[in-house]
Design a protein around this nucleic acid. Structure first.
Lengths: 234, 234
DNA sequence: CTCCGTGTGACAATCGGTTGATAAATAGAT
DNA sequence: ATCTATTTATCAACCGATTGTCACACGGAG
């Protein structure tokens, strides 16, 4: 992996936090550890993670609330709960709130690591871009492998690398809103975060390519405060 | 859902097998139940499943072996173990063999159902996921991922980010009153607190969207002094 | 150096969300 | 029942952040 996988760890007991953090770091993860729910949400809004580990018992705002709030914005990121209570009602509640896994304290660190591995792997798989060679929008066809756009009259426009990647992302997530963060993450790869105006520019180009009426887009919709959505019936 | 989700259940205790099968079927899954590992592998080769549930203790060939064999040819399908032993070494072993989850007997059936739901979701295609991330109110359907509302005649209204979030929250807490404070905390994320009139406005638009008679709401009830409640039978 | 692909900054346009005023409804007090 | 206080319903107008658009700056590859 070219890039370290990122984990947000929320746990208020110092020694447990340290132990988990250390072990995950030894496994090669980049761990951002915080001690309460509000801070967790703040960090979550600013950065992206491959996994979130939440203690249920937290000062002020408990793990369930944090989970619920995160799920309102982001359905994707895997969430794992840690808790001392081993009642099944408690576990069920956690799972209902949108958790993907649940670990009861005291737990075996090796088990934690393994479960973390499973969850993270999952999020990677779905992030990967699938095999997709061409896609037809209106009377134009995109060829992802050769980076070009064929018009109905047979003429061909070359596409740049970033254009192609972004097109692929949006088309793969057809009919789903793709957030600006997801776009940056996928196309710009975590490290370089260009200004958000850059994305607009690409959308602008796409609209010029594909939209019959640029002012009333049919394919490339912007969703305020979220990102963009590509829509197509077929 | 376009197609029933398929589960392969391998369990040798009759009454447990029946109980699990029944409960999963009630949830709408198509369950293929077998009682030993060899049969399981045979069926697995012939058909495709969205999830495999394996008891560890099986006659002849144990669950670990079955899992290992399956993983040799198919890394994708989610596998869940059931076992009586609750030693962490045992759990770790299961996870190492390629399981995605692990449930210790005796377990709560609701927890099983929930975990099954989580695992199965992963094996789904985007079209089915779209169905999962939707909610039907009357003859209209909300799609949370695409931020849109589909009417019975097929026309589509776009939803804004906040509209979608608030709908999600109220629907999640279906039949429960959600206080204005909770709404503000969750949807407006602690930082900015607009006047409570803002919430009314959203409810107003929801009523316009969904209520046949706006003056006598069936779905979006206001609870004086508290907040709002979304009611729906299904 | 010169391209071409990208990123930036400025400005305009727009949309969503917020507010405040007013009407209507509700609950409690008399 | 009537009156009063408080909360909610409704609406139009406003404001500000986000997005659209474009011209230009930058910088690596050739």
């Amino acid at each position: 992996m070219s890039q370290k996988l990122r984990i947000l760890l929320v746990e208020d007991e110092d020694h447990l936090l340290d132990a988990i953090k250390l072990n995950l770091e030894l496994e090669g993860y980049k761990v951002h550890a915080v001690k309460d729910g509000k801070t967790a949400l703040k960090i979550f809004k600013e950065e992206r993670f491959n996994l979130i580990i939440l203690d249920v018992m937290l000062p002020e705002m408990d793990g369930f609330q944090v989970c619920e709030t995160i799920r309102l914005e982001n359905a994707e990121v895997p969430i794992m709960f840690l808790t001392a209570k081993n009642t099944s009602e408690d576990r069920v509640l956690g799972l209902k709130k949108g958790a993907d896994d649940y670990l009861v304290k005291p737990f075996n660190l090796e088990e934690l690591i393994l479960r973390v591995g499973i969850l993270v792997k999952r999020s990677l798989k779905s992030d990967d871009l699938k095999e997709l060679n061409s896609y037809k929008i209106g009377d134009k066809t995109i060829y992802f492998n050769s980076f070009e756009l064929k018009h109905d009259d047979g003429t061909i426009t070359p596409l740049t690398k970033k254009e192609t990647m972004l097109l692929k992302l949006l088309i793969e997530r057809k009919n789903d809103a793709v957030s600006r963060e997801q776009i940056l993450e996928t196309v710009w790869n975590y490290d370089v975060y260009p200004s958000t105006r850059t994305i607009d520019n690409f959308i602008l180009t796409f609209r010029k390519y594909f939209e019959p009426d640029q002012k009333n887009p049919v394919y490339f919709h912007s969703i305020r405060g979220v990102g963009y959505k590509f829509t197509d019936s077929h």
